[in-house]
Design a protein around this nucleic acid. Sequence first.
DNA 1: TGTTTTCCTTGACCTGGATCAATAAAGTGT
DNA 2: ACACTTTATTGATCCAGGTCAAGGAAAACA
Lengths: 226, 226
Amino acid sequence: MDDLKKTISDMAIYEGLTDSDLDSLVRIACEKAFQKGSIIFFDGEYSDGFYVVIAGRIKITKISAKGKEQILYILGAGEPFGQLALYHGGVFPATAQALEKSTCLFFPKNPFLKLVSENPAMPFNMLAFLSRRHRELALQIENIALKEVPERLAGYLLYLLNEQKTSKPFNLPIPKEQLAYLLGASPETLSRALAKMVDQQIISMHGKSVTVLDKNGLKTMASANH
Amino acid sequence: MDDLKKTISDMAIYEGLTDSDLDSLVRIACEKAFQKGSIIFFDGEYSDGFYVVIAGRIKITKISAKGKEQILYILGAGEPFGQLALYHGGVFPATAQALEKSTCLFFPKNPFLKLVSENPAMPFNMLAFLSRRHRELALQIENIALKEVPERLAGYLLYLLNEQKTSKPFNLPIPKEQLAYLLGASPETLSRALAKMVDQQIISMHGKSVTVLDKNGLKTMASANH
DNA sequence: TGTTTTCCTTGACCTGGATCAATAAAGTGT
DNA sequence: ACACTTTATTGATCCAGGTCAAGGAAAACA
């Protein structure tokens, strides 16, 4: 099995596909490389296919007229993006931008849809994926609309802490500015919120590295009743 | 064709189904009535199926520990809700509550999934629906995170204006308190924002009835650059 | 290695919108 | 038509967090 085929067969959205389906995918797939900061597609742009991250990190983001930014998701290896436009509307609902040097596989719309229509397992995988994303977006709204910045931050740090099994120090996976945009805050506000947590001995921080000193304190903070 | 079957065949998610598939759906469907204000399911509750609105209005909503509320969608006749849990997670990602006396059809999970697996057209319809919802949620985040209340309100009024073809007065489809929760504002703030629009002669308002006096003014307001 | 650029932090200030409170208006049921 | 409950308006106050500004730390680059 060649490299590309192996890469594709490892993708969750393609779980359970037959060998010949994988071959068809290999045939239509096309690799694209992106520099840090380069735009993969713009909000509202006509869609001619969708992408799966192979390496690097991609942010899916909304940008206002004033230039303010809200990150919807940050995606890593194996995760698809831009599929919505395949099924509804025909244009991308948000902007995709590389947070770092990244590589993606591109699947062009028409050949892909043809393939899907011939294989009943695929829409089901896609449904599961879209459902997960949908759930994440609902959570985003909950966080932004109903919680304050320190709560959101605490929730995010707990999420990072649970990602790794140990309670060792970990690195913030993205620059703090980007984290601010993910949490729906200004970089200044995030900086202050972090400083306050350090002050309260809930975490300690050196550059990107964070150590959780008081997990229970974090939990309390994340579900603050005020 | 009996009433229930007709109702089901009119639903967009069931477009293009064969007669025998419709019959199967009729067999598993079950009608449920809800009083104004009654909860259909809670955020985080285990899911045993999903619903389609037949009559009335349902809100899908997130509620914080402090009791603050953010409406994600408001659904009317023909629209499905609660399907996410079928495909991922197994629990409802938000609370569903009847805004008024409503009737829904309930489709129990297991029989439905069995049906779906036998009919390849259905997941595709569902994908299209989920995609549309996803797009709406992304828009919600954009509104809440990146725009101010007057902009969101102007956008919503334009949406209502475009729903009907004429530029005649129209009624707000929901109470102003609920509209506030949909727009991510407090009822007081919404009240003031509406009062200001009346003051600026952009709209006039009598109870639930709104007349748009200055559509261009509304448009400007909806995409304010500040 | 130094230089430029980007990112982070901290301070001072300001404002959109939440909250509290009290009244008015609209619905609802009897 | 009347009492009761729910919804809407308006005023006064307060604060989370945005914005502007300026200095420091890290990265990126030549």
